[in-house]
Structures are given as C-alpha cells and as structure tokens.
Design a protein around this nucleic acid. Structure first.
Lengths: 211, 211
DNA sequence: CGGCATCCTCTTTGATACTG
DNA sequence: CAGTATCAAAGAGGATGCCG
C-alpha cells in the first residue's frame, strides 16, 4: 500500500501496521508468542498466502516482527514480535476494548479462531484473586491473577460452562443464570461484580454498522 | 472493504475504523472538533473525494461520527465524533506514541498538514505548569497545563522558535541549543526534564521501513 | 461554492495453483 | 513447510460533472 506521506506519528504508525491483516497478525503473535508461517495462515481465515507473505515482509522491514530459525531438530522458521512490536500490546488492548463496546452477541456468522477464549477473558475480565475456568463451546481457558490462559486450570475454584451466546450474556449482561457454574459460585459472582461499569450505549448496533 | 468476519473485538474494531484513511479522518476530528466535508478533504492530501465520502458514510453507520447541520446562517453540514468515536482518543494517543518512536527526523518528503504542531505538542510533551509557545516554520502553538493549542498564547512565559528539524532535535534529542528561546528559558528546560525517558531504539529506521 | 456521484485507470486483494 | 506465480475481482486515486 502506498504510504500516507504525512509527517505525523499516527500516519507513520498506520504506514507500519495499518494495512489490512497486519494488526491481526500482530494480535496472533501477541497471543501466541511465536508462530510459523502456516500457523498464522490457518488462524487468519480469508487471508491469502501471498497477502500474508507481503504483510510479514513489511512488518519485518518496519521492525515490528522478526524471523527466527528454530534450533534443530525442529528447524522451522517462526515469526515473533520484536521489542518494538511488543510495545503494541497496550494499544491493541485499548483498541479491542473499544471494539468490544459495539460487538454484538455472537449470533452472526462470525468465525471463532482457535484460542479466542483466552483473548476474550484477558480483555473482558478484571484481575481476580480466584482461579476460574471457562468452558465455552469447545474452547477451554481460565483466569488467574491478572492474566488469562488457554487450556484447563489445575485447581480451579469454579468452572463456568456454556455456549458462546451464554458467555456473551454473562460478560455483557452479567447474567449468571445463562451459564452453569460448578464449584465456588461466589467467586464468579465476585468477579462479575468487579467488571468495569457497563458502557452506556453505542449509537449503531452491529447489524446496522456492517452492511 | 470486506469485513474480517471473525467474532473478535480487535477484528470488529478494524471493521469499523481499519480501512485506509478512516483513522486519519478520526484524527482530524479529534483535533479540530467538527469539520466540513471540504475541510477534511483538504487536510488529507491524496484522499480522493469518493474515498472520503465512502469512509464518512461507513464511519457514520458504525456510530463513530455523525453529521450535523450547522445553525443558520452558516447552514453547512459538519462531521463530528460521537461519544463512541471520542472514546478512540486514548487509543489514538497510544498509537501515535508508538508511531513516534520510529518516526525519523523530518528530512523526508513528509507533508505537514496545517495544525500539526498542536498535535505534536500534545503527543510529545508532558503536562506543564508553565505556558510555553512554539513557533515552528509557519505554525504556532502553545502548551499549558495538560493540553496543547494551536495559535498564539496570550501570556507565554517563554517562546521557542525554530524550523522543523530544530524542533525535532529539541524533542527527541533534548537539544535546547537547536532552537532560540525568548523569555524564561528555565521553564523550557524544566519541560524537557519532564519528558518521558527516551525509548531505547527501534530496530529499523524509517528509511529502511518504507520501501 | 460545498457536498458529493460518476467514470476511468491503476493497484491491491483474495483464491487457487504451483515450486524449492 | 514456506512461500512464489497467476489471475479475476474489488478497491484506490484522480479528474470531472452534477445539483442544491
């Protein structure tokens, strides 16, 4: 893509990561740490291999990511964020928060990429002292302290289970009855109580926003 | 542009503001408040009128901006951010900070849009008790408290003057001698001392980043 | 004029096929 | 596995035209 050609930090940032797919690649690397070409490709449904190659090249030239050769015997090349690329984490976090405010319930045709649950928990939930596991559809993840992880917790105080719509109900409408809770239900209640205040309203709903 | 089609707040945010030019439109509205179609267009060199119209429509549908009819006699339509669009301010601020780390000196062909100085000051400078005016090229702006404004200050404690390269020297390398200071030079020195620590280094310089 | 819509050319995308 | 090659379709950029 042509650069904007403005001497402005915003425009420059967009020259580096503003192209289509670029920030989603960064998102994957932020969540997974280091990924092979094919791993990235299969997580980004709709992104052609040529586009991916072009973006990776550009991000590398921009100092956002770098290629590394895995030590033998698994000598495959992986991509990971540079220190500079890592610095995008707070930006991405805020942007995701912003986007979440107008992200409707998952009724639409949205594709859920593997590992989405840990990302969702990380964004949605405040730090908690408890360890709570979530099973949503075929995804499993848990929160503990101020981080969220994919997979099962070792000693969860509570396990929350439900489908994607119930999960949305829980997080957005604080509807505890939407899901089934095993274990310490009060720990979940406490977590919900610590959620940031509901953002009042977003003018246009998702359906209208996207033609 | 086609949507990403992922049920993910990041992807959704990019569906709303991730298209080319969209975030630059938001930047203008954040800085100027409300602008007419033509004002936006002349601030975005390179953006065709059809593109601008399409982006404005999309941003409006997404609830990021809205159109308003100015009261008579100047009954022209202006665009401004909704409350939801305003919420992009911290995101943009962080993104600009990130971009500034790899934005080189202004030797390149970068175009300086009118009003850039206030934006630059807002991003670069920490809150200050003093009121300091900057004259860079033909732009004038000043900082006071935790905000930055375009135009002349009424009672500046100091006036800093120089060209764009000197301004960059001042902010990035803390080189006070690069510019001429009238009035309370210590106020400027104090401001520089409060700048955040220099970010160590960005792997690839601007020149290499952009082919 | 200010606020777009249209037309046209050129680049980018997205999907598939192919190669070291 | 990690990309490059190819190609149709969509989007970007520029000029111009229309309409209040």
């Amino acid at each position: 893509m042509k650069e904007y050609g403005q001497y402005c930090p915003m425009a420059h940032a967009l020259d580096l990561v503003g192209e289509r797919w670029s920030l989603l690649i960064v998102r994957e690397l932020l969540e997974e740490g280091a990924l092979r070409y094919t791993d990235i490709h299969c997580r980004l449904t709709g992104c052609g291999t040529n586009i991916l190659a072009a973006r990776l090249k550009r991000l590398e030239q921009g100092g956002v990511i770098h290629r590394r050769q895995l030590p033998p015997p698994a000598a495959s090349t992986v991509y990971e964020l540079t220190e500079y690329g890592e610095a995008l984490r707070p930006v991405m976090h805020q942007l995701a928060h912003w986007g979440a405010r107008s992200l409707g319930p998952p009724t639409s045709e949205g594709v859920l990429e593997p590992g989405w649950l840990a990302g969702a928990l990380r964004i949605a939930l405040p730090p908690t002292a408890s360890c709570i596991e979530f099973r949503v559809g075929d995804e499993v993840g848990y929160v503990e302290g101020d981080e969220a992880y994919a997979g099962s917790a070792e000693m969860p105080q509570a396990v929350v289970e439900g489908d994607v719509a119930s999960f949305y109900e829980l997080l957005v409408n604080r509807e505890l009855d939407a899901v089934t809770v095993r274990g310490d239900e009060d720990a979940v209640r406490e977590l919900l109580a610590k959620l940031p205040p509901r953002t009042p309203d977003v003018p246009a709903p998702l359906a209208a926003a996207l033609s």
